[in-house]
Design a binder for these strands. Structure first.
Lengths: 146, 146
DNA sequence: ATCGATGCAAACCTTTTGCATGCAG
DNA sequence: CTGCATGCAAAAGGTTTGCATCGAT
């Protein structure tokens, strides 16, 4: 079994939240597509295809819960939806968003440590997490312009 | 008169948008509170206090317009609202968001250049803009915990 | 058996839109 | 004058909530 799945189950149980079928199914989707982010509607569609009929309200309630528990990260890309993705400490990544084709490219951030350290010292602010989005033109779109 | 105000007027006129009283008043609010961000409702309240009765729909339409024209930046802090702030090239700043008291601290980013350069090379992605949010505990809240 | 979790539908709330009127160019 | 911009109210659309029922512990 997935180590992360066990970890998340423990987080729920430790805080006296019940391990319902619905919660397990939602987590399984995120764990299958590790780096991907979903909004409530997208999750609902994926679960329907798996013949898991979970009400939208339940999905919303649990996305919010998982976010509060630190299991999921809440993202937004300035459209109408809230997106969520796994909050895995071992795989911190961010997004390059193409302003031409809306493609989203994930990248890892190892080089950010020093930058954060300086900020913490300067503002007396203890950084726990960050969300970084770079907007620009992706390789493909730049190529098509030529 | 404010140099930026003239610049924004020129952007509108050059693209054949009309210089209405409402547009000028909205821009004036942003130019008065240079570093601050507002959502539509907050702007409406500020304008009401100035006895400028501008319809909410007009505010929404113009925030969107100014965003498309590059005059305003669109932000979000994972609540229900969209926020906007001046997009001044000379004063690029970002946000430290306290996860305890929701206080938002602005900081400038001069040290980000190298980081971006590396990303561009690695992914063939031409970066035009970025939005960076650091979540953590601010000085005040850290102090109160002790 | 208890009480938190779910499902459904209705309510909510921010944002968008249609349409008649107003005003910048 | 002409047609874009505004204001109002209504609609849209994502998210939240109330309540009866279900099911994890």
């Amino acid at each position: 079994m997935d180590k992360n799945f066990e970890k998340f189950k423990k987080i729920l149980v430790d805080k006296d939240y019940r391990l319902t079928e619905q919660r397990k199914e939602i987590l399984k989707v995120f764990l299958k597509y590790k780096e991907k982010h979903f909004n409530a509607e997208e999750l609902s569609d994926i679960l329907k295809k798996r013949d898991e009929n979970i009400g939208l309200a339940t999905i919303y309630r649990n996305l919010e819960l998982f976010h509060r528990l630190g299991i999921l990260k809440q993202l937004d890309f300035n459209d109408a939806f809230k997106y969520y993705e796994l909050n895995l400490i071992e795989k911190h990544h961010h997004h390059l968003i193409c302003i031409n084709c809306d493609r989203i490219i994930e990248f890892n951030d190892e080089a950010l440590g020093d930058f954060e350290k300086n900020l913490e010292d300067e503002y007396g602010f203890k950084i726990k997490d960050h969300i970084i989005k770079f907007y620009g033109v992706c390789k493909k779109c730049a190529g098509e312009d030529e």
